[in-house]
Amino acid sequence: MIDKKNVLLQAKHLKKYFKLSRKSYLYAVDDISFEIESGKTLGLVGESGCGKSTIGNVVMRLIPQTDGELLYKGKDIFKVDKNESFELRKKMQIIFQDPYSSLNPRKTILQILSEAFVIQKVCSRNEIKKNVLELCDIVQIPHNLLNHYPHELDGGMRQVVGIARALSLNPDFIVCDEPVSSLDVSVQARIINLLMDIQKKRKISYLFISHDLSVVRHISHRVAVMYLGKMVEIADTDDIFRNTMHPYSIALLSAVPTIEKFGENKTRILLQGDVPSPINPEHGCRFVKRCWMTGPKCHTSEEPPFKEVESGHYVACFYAEKARMLMNEYTKNRGKINND
């Protein structure tokens, strides 16, 4: 459940269409709404091409939106003037996926971490070094690395530099765009712990974008599932994983290979075919072609409404109840396997 008083960032009907030619558009993000509470994490999952990163970029105003509103503390940040926009950038930061291409290879770590202070003029020149050192202590970058260049660091340490850079101006909100997907599991665990510790200490909100469901489950308070530019389901983390309702979310969850179960008996919903193209998609439900439990309403051009099925649990499916019933049966079966 979202505590309305505590909402830091709210997206309303966010849209981003990329124009490809006179008549064709790529519907990367199509009418997405969500809220993020302060100090909480919203996880955004979906497969490649579903528009997760586009949302991150639009929220950061790295690319212009096509339509919609984005309220930061109640104020629409798409409509603010240049000065205010500059101020807002202190409050909103981003950590990128690839720690190899997101750090300038010609600058030392000290220069990279000083940049934000220089640009935003938050402190005098003399204080910058002191601030950078403080920053390094928070994220545990050894001070002797400061005069090194990014290529001298391993992937995990580079991502830590990326995190330090995002933290430098004390933001309220950070977009984490697949921050751990290029890292090995032992390093990944360290970065996830770091992000969670920082959140606890500084009450930062995250928009955590990832394709890895178990990572998202671990770090998020609320999770949204996307498919082809649309949000298909959003709910609190425990709710969405225990009580999954959208047929796509159910299939996605069942597709993850896990070590908890030893193969053989595991029921799995296999989706047919690939994710269709987001260029000029047909009207109606976007998932219908790959869905495993369609009903008569699904094949019409009517779009399934994104409605609140239970408190705080929104689903865009005509037959969410039926899907959940099937899911429960499936969970029961898995339970049986456990008992045997």
């Binding site: 032992s186 990572v215 489950r217 671990h218 994983f241 993850v256």
Partner: peptide, 10 residues
């Protein structure tokens, strides 16, 4: 260590 470092789905 490897097994403890992986977030779980359940």
């Amino acid at each position: 260590g490897l097994l403890n470092a992986i977030p779980k789905l359940e």
